[in-house]
Design a protein around this nucleic acid. Structure first.
Lengths: 224, 224
DNA sequence: TCCAGAGTGTAACATTTGTTACACTTCGAT
DNA sequence: ATCGAAGTGTAACAAATGTTACACTCTGGA
């Protein structure tokens, strides 16, 4: 476990022994979860710090019509809901559900606070995590503020372009993309068709080939 | 100045004398700005910590088509771009522009870091500010994820309902609302008309009267 | 008082997206 | 190898929103 934690942003810069010592100073537990399980509901109070050790989680907003907007996927050894543990409104902003079986390391809030105050490096790491989280959310807003599906796809592709190539690898289905974009799945497929007709991209199963980078960029108004 | 700072979230819990001592340990400066001035452009590196002392600022995203989405208005004595000073991507996510004349207190990043490490209370306050910021952004995403203008208006009104009354005071124009909602102004006006036709609200110049709270809530699917 | 500018109501029309339905493909498990 | 589930392409139609234009109202200052 400590080897995994060593790789986590929170314990970055500490060695296995130090991590071991720090963690054993406070109460902690390990909880397993299974695929599809909901670990927390939107609106629930955040009372525990959780670090994902194994498996995959996702945070998704479920609006009132039952539609969902996937905010992020969480993989080990990331913290869960880091930015919602402190601050004026410490409630889960999303439903937290499991995309596979897995394990999380859990601290109660008070124990976690003590952990942070025991080591300035941890505190500093945590500050960076929370800042990074805010920055992630900010980029999410940038993304959501694109009006058309065309723009969203262009932005997504340009941001995932494998450097030095004209390829974007897809590790999620169109359905999953549609959830992230907050749009209907056939609408994405239609826009992809249009982009293919215009010879701007070629969309294959697991990757996208950019045929005309200039045109793709021009969708976003010649920036980026 | 120290009296204003004492009220700020960052210096919360410290008295004027302590604030004075702390601040004078590090280099700092005061900068004035005038109405309409742009203090920082989106994408610019955040190298200074700024605390607004006087006046009003706004952060707005300008997308490539020239449309804008107003993210927030900042009033004294709040920090500016608090969540973007640290973390992996310390760039302004918005254009920062002045809505009036005013003054900001400025620290260089290194000096500010030193300030934080000199006093655990400051560090703790800062952590809360950044968390709060992430929470604010998260709520913004909730808002943007409403699909229809109807839902956005309903959500806005229910959140601004003056407690104990059926009134919502409007301190911004429909145009300004449209910018916040990220939609076209006539589209908002149309939806307002529809809600009035259905006797759900009465939209006057400076306030909105809720005529049927049940129906308004039902727009969001009987929650909230 | 009157005027200019900002804000508002509204209409016709264009564009984009959602909805639903169905056929086809891919891929893994049995 | 076959079956079935999940993913994909596509079409017709409905619904929501954007665009543009214009008339009207309010408000503050000359």
């Amino acid at each position: 476990m400590f080897d995994i934690l060593k790789l986590s942003p929170l314990f970055s810069g500490l060695d296995t022994l130090e991590i071991n010592l720090l963690i054993n100073k406070v109460f902690h537990q390990i909880r397993t979860f299974s695929n599809q399980e909901v670990l927390a509901f939107s609106g629930e109070k955040v009372e525990r710090a959780m670090i994902l050790l194994e498996g995959k989680l996702q945070g998704e907003m479920v609006d009132f019509s039952g539609n969902s907007l996937k905010i992020e996927e969480i993989e080990p050894p990331q913290m869960v809901a880091a930015a919602f543990l402190y601050g004026p409104q410490s409630f889960f902003p999303v439903n937290l559900s499991a995309l596979s079986d897995g394990k999380v390391l859990i601290f109660l809030k008070n124990d976690f606070t003590q952990l942070l105050s025991n080591d300035l490096r941890l505190l500093n790491n945590y500050l960076n995590i929370v800042s990074g989280k805010a920055q992630f959310l900010s980029r999410k807003i940038t993304f959501l503020s694109f009006k058309t599906i065309r723009e969203k796809i262009a932005y997504y592709l340009l941001n995932h372009l494998k450097p030095g190539t004209m390829l974007v690898f897809l590790n999620q289905s169109q359905k999953s993309l549609a959830e992230m974009f907050g749009v209907a799945r056939p609408s994405i497929a239609r826009t992809i068709s249009e982009l293919e007709d215009e010879k701007i991209i070629r969309w294959e199963r697991n990757q996208v080939v950019i045929l005309d980078l200039q045109l793709l960029r021009s969708i976003l108004g010649r920036q980026l």
